[in-house]
Each structure stands twice: as structure tokens, then as C-alpha cells.
């Protein structure tokens, strides 16, 4: 089963005719994802390597039954693209674009508040259900099908975690990069909720970082609702305050957003937090064992 995407997902790429959109659209298709359409206003009627391109998302939905959108448009056009996807009846939009203005995201999130479309990102690597479907820029070959859900604010650090899990014999149900911006479509809690209800997910690995209080909120939610073992790693223990560490959202400001507070909150909720990024899989194994579950896939 897994969450959000599987082999039945039908993907439209908004921005398929751009460099990144084309490259990653084709890489997703190579992985096995059904990339059924592209959208670039003004380029309707053309094709990219056999994939039809439309002027609007609505046409891609009508003609190709697309239900998932992967967005690769410039930052100035991202809000428009997300709102168009929602208007066209897309079920899941995944916005890879980095550098979307905060004001645009405040408005987009308000518009999506009472709306059936789920947004992942922006500024995220996307998501993957190993062996079935990839929507985003994650490297497919490090993943293995299995029962660990992964949710992360990071990109390459997630790949690091996934590689460790795979090497330790722990495959993944779905891995979701929720993005490194201060305002994002789906939170840790949104994804944890889905993993909690997914029978194929037996445990969750969460990767957080400095900035904001999303990890603390997740910790509170986990204590109250989570029925599955959770392990975590928080990056930025040594990050200096007041400095933006690469991601727009990764900043300790006014005593808020510190890594040690996040680690403490997660531990208080029973989450196994890895002391070091070299021991992420070990923390997951320890959480599974503590819950009486096998620490590797049979």
C-alpha cells in the first residue's frame, strides 16, 4: 500500500519543457512512474520524448487522467502552478521549486486550507514509494521496498538516512521530503498521520533540523496519537544562532528553533533520537526492537 503515491499514480509535470522538468520527468518515468503529461503554457500540442504537453493542467487531467502533479516552474510562477493544479482537481501536488516567496506560500496555504488537494513542498526533493513510483529528484536506486516510513525536511541528508536503512536491511514504505522552507504544504504531523494509518508502515524515521517548532509539534502529536515506533535525527546541533543554514527555514532566532530543544521534545515523547548522523539506522533498529518488532525485513 504505502502512502500518497503508488504504481497507479498518474503524473503530470508542470514545467516539463524546462531543463529540470524534462530531466527529472524522464528520470521518474525511467524509475517506473507513470508520467502521463506535461504542462507548459504556450507549448500545448508539443511532446517531450513521447509525453504530450498541454497548455493547462485541466487538459492534462481531462485527456490523460493525471492525478498527481510534479511542479518544476520558476519561483515566481510556483504559487500560480500550485493553485492551478488544485483548480484542475489534482489530488497531490509536489512542488520541487526552491526560493518561493513566503508571501506567496502564506496565500497558497490559506487557499488550500479547505481543499482536497495535498501539497508537498516547496523546496523539497519529492517522494518515493520504492519499487512503484517516484515523484521528485530523489535517487531511486538507494531505496528498497519495505516497511519504514521516512519523513524529512532535508534532501541529501534523507538519502544518507535511506542508504543506512537499506544497508541495515530496512526497506521503506514511502519516503517523503516535506521541504526546507518556513511555510510548506504538508507538515511532519500530516505525514505521520498517513503513516500511522498505513498498514504497510511499521515504523517511522523522522529527520528534522533547526528552525521553527515543527519537530516539537510532531513530538506532542506522537505522544498522543502515534501507534508505531518512531526514531529521529535532528541536524544543526552546532549551528550558530541567527544564521540561515542553507535552507530558508533553517535558522535559530530569538531562542526558538534550537536542535537541543527538538531532541528533548522528541525524547520526551519516546522517540529514539540518533546522537550522530552516522547512527540513524541504528536508532531506527533500536526503536523497532523496543516495540517488539523485527529490526530488519525478513
Amino acid at each position: 500500500m504505502a502512502i500518497l503515491i503508488d504504481r497507479r499514480s498518474r503524473i503530470v509535470v508542470q514545467g516539463l519543457t524546462g531543463n529540470s522538468g524534462r530531466r527529472h520527468g524522464l528520470l521518474c518515468r525511467d524509475y517506473g512512474s507513470q508520467v502521463v503529461a506535461g504542462v507548459t503554457p504556450g507549448k500545448g500540442g508539443t511532446q517531450i520524448d513521447g509525453i504530450p504537453v498541454f497548455d493547462t493542467v485541466a487538459e492534462a487531467v481531462e485527456t490523460c487522467a493525471a492525478d498527481v502533479s510534479m511542479i518544476f516552474v520558476p519561483p515566481s510562477a510556483a504559487a500560480e502552478a500550485i493553485l492551478e493544479a488544485s483548480d484542475a482537481g489534482i489530488r497531490l501536488a509536489v512542488c520541487i521549486t526552491e526560493g518561493v516567496p513566503v508571501r506567496d506560500m502564506v496565500l497558497v496555504n490559506r487557499a488550500l486550507a479547505n481543499n482536497p488537494m495535498r501539497l508537498i513542498g516547496p523546496n523539497c526533493p519529492g517522494l518515493i514509494t520504492p519499487g512503484q513510483c517516484k515523484v521528485g529528484i530523489l535517487p531511486g536506486d538507494i531505496h528498497r521496498p519495505g516497511s519504514i516510513g521516512v519523513v524529512s525536511r532535508s534532501g541529501t541528508l534523507t538519502y544518507e538516512a535511506v542508504q543506512q536503512l537499506t544497508d541495515a536491511g530496512l526497506g521503506q514504505s514511502t519516503c517523503v521530503g516535506i521541504g526546507g522552507d518556513p511555510i510548506i504544504g504538508s507538515s511532519f504531523i500530516d505525514i505521520l498521520t498517513l503513516f500511522n494509518d498505513d498498514p504497510d508502515t511499521h515504523g517511522v524515521f523522522l529527520i528534522g533540523e533547526i528552525g521553527g517548532t515543527a519537530e516539537e509539534q510532531a513530538a506532542t502529536w506522537i505522544r498522543r496519537h502515534m501507534r508505531k515506533p518512531v526514531a529521529a535525527y535532528i541536524a544543526g546541533m552546532t549551528a550558530p544562532p541567527g544564521k540561515r543554514m542553507g535552507h530558508a527555514g533553517a535558522i535559530v532566532s530569538g531562542g526558538s528553533g534550537r536542535a537541543k530543544d527538538k531532541v528533548a521534545a522528541l525524547r520526551d515523547s519516546g522517540v529514539r533520537v540518533a546522537e550522530s548522523p552516522a547512527r540513524m539506522a541504528a536508532a531506527m533498529q533500536s526503536a523497532l526492537e523496543a516495540a517488539g518488532l523485527s529490526s530488519h525485513d525478513s
Partner: peptide
């Protein structure tokens, strides 16, 4: 390092091993 999260994690790892990072670089 490539990637902001991995770069932060690398600084944390280095500090844990007794090293002093000169910089964060993604």
C-alpha cells in the same frame, strides 16, 4: 558538502569527533 541538511549533520559529526569546523558550505 552537498545539501543543507547533510552539511549541518556533517558539522555536528565533526564536532562530536572533537573537530572544529571552519565553515558551513552547501
Amino acid at each position: 558538502v552537498n545539501g543543507a541538511g547533510l552539511a549541518m549533520a556533517t558539522l555536528d559529526m565533526l564536532t562530536e569527533c572533537g573537530g572544529q569546523p571552519a565553515n558551513f558550505l552547501d
